[in-house]
Amino acid sequence: MRKKQIGIKCMAISLVMACSVLNFTGCSIGDNTPIIGNITGLKSNQMFKIDELVCSKSEYMICLLDTAKQYAKDFGGSVDWKNKISDHKTLEEFVKDKVKESITVKYALAAMAKKNNVTLSDTEKTEVSKQASQYYKAMTDSEKDYTDAKEADVENLCEKYKLAEKVYSGITEHVGDDISEEDARVIKIQYIKMDSSKTKVSKIKSTLNEVKSVVEGGYQEFSREAKQYSVDSTVEKDIKKGEATLKYETEAFNLTKGKISDIIEDGDSYYLVYCVNNYIKDKTTENKKDMVEKAKEAVFNEQYSKFIDGSKNQFNDKQWKKIELPSL
């Protein structure tokens, strides 16, 4: 395979867009992953194998090239891959590690497709073929030399990525459906915290009861009293469920707007909580989205790890160490 300088040229379709790929979390197959079963070894044109699914070096190089071009674009078109980004790693090593993680996870999911009875429909196969053809036609001769790729390699890569996407979607499709608005509700409070290690309990209780009385009577603003008496420098914050102790959380989330809690005793700490807003809509929506994503990630990671633990896999570390990123 000839090595040539690869100039910057924006492709009509990036590989990420062409293959409609999700950024999956999870573990990659490391070069020190224990081998399960009898592995006959990988050829020089094969990068890794998961059960019977093999990723060719050309498929791997396409992914590496595409990622390198994305980094070059982000850096303004010129990259020195040998630049140190830490004491122990160059930018080239960092990018190679990221590609290794990304592609091995996606191919592992593609390998799971058979086990989960996941296949591409005729329509999906046609679309993958069309996208691969467009991508390959947009490649320069020097890019084809660098990857040693044929159109079939691009199509095979896109097919595996599409299968990975379908497997991931199938695993996580209904995960998080049971998470409610109430589960995700975010509220804004003001509070006073007093510490019995610094002030007598009787004094704390009389102070907090007095604050509650004057605020409810309309004589003072809660925030003013909080700044005067609270041992915390911050007197207002947004909170989600699970961020405070159960006793504190229960009292705070039971409040309606403009109401003040009873005194909350929690160890050496004593609190008075004022509800500014008992439902912050935009932050609740964002929190619910985050909770669903974390739930999906947990379910996916469990099934993915179980599959990897029971699979036969091998990574061609010898070839991987020889690979250099293209000069862009």
Rank of each mutant, 00 (worst) to 15 (best):
I85Q: 09
M112L: 04
G7W: 11
T207M: 12
Y60C: 01
G26N: 04
K130A: 05
E221L: 14
K49G: 07
L246T: 05
I192T: 11
D309I: 00
G267I: 08
I264F: 12
F94C: 02
V273Q: 13
G267W: 07
F222P: 01
S86D: 06
N117Y: 05
S311I: 04
I192Q: 11
V215P: 10
Y229L: 11
K283D: 10
M291I: 10
E165M: 09
M112G: 08
C27H: 05
V292N: 05
E286R: 09
V201P: 01
S223H: 04
N116Q: 03
V128F: 06
C63N: 02
E236S: 15
L22T: 00
L255K: 10
T104F: 03
T67D: 01
Y219L: 09
E151D: 11
A295G: 04
S86T: 09
S327F: 04
A184V: 02
K212C: 13
N83F: 00
K106W: 00
M1Q: 10
E297L: 11
D238G: 06
I8H: 07
A244M: 15
I204G: 12
L65A: 03
K237A: 12
A184M: 05
V79S: 02
I187F: 04
K318A: 15
Q319T: 11
Q190N: 11
S86P: 00
V215N: 13
C19S: 14
N156I: 02
E92G: 09
V54I: 12
I239R: 14
K57A: 06
D268C: 00
E92Q: 11
S180D: 11
L255S: 12
K43N: 13
V167S: 08
G258K: 04
A18L: 06
K294P: 05
Y71F: 11
G267Q: 09
F253I: 05
S230F: 13
V201M: 10
V95T: 06
D66H: 04
D232Q: 10
K193Q: 07
F300N: 02
E101C: 02
V105S: 06
I280Y: 01
V175H: 09
N313E: 01
E159R: 06
S230I: 12
K294H: 14
S44D: 07
V292K: 10
V211D: 12
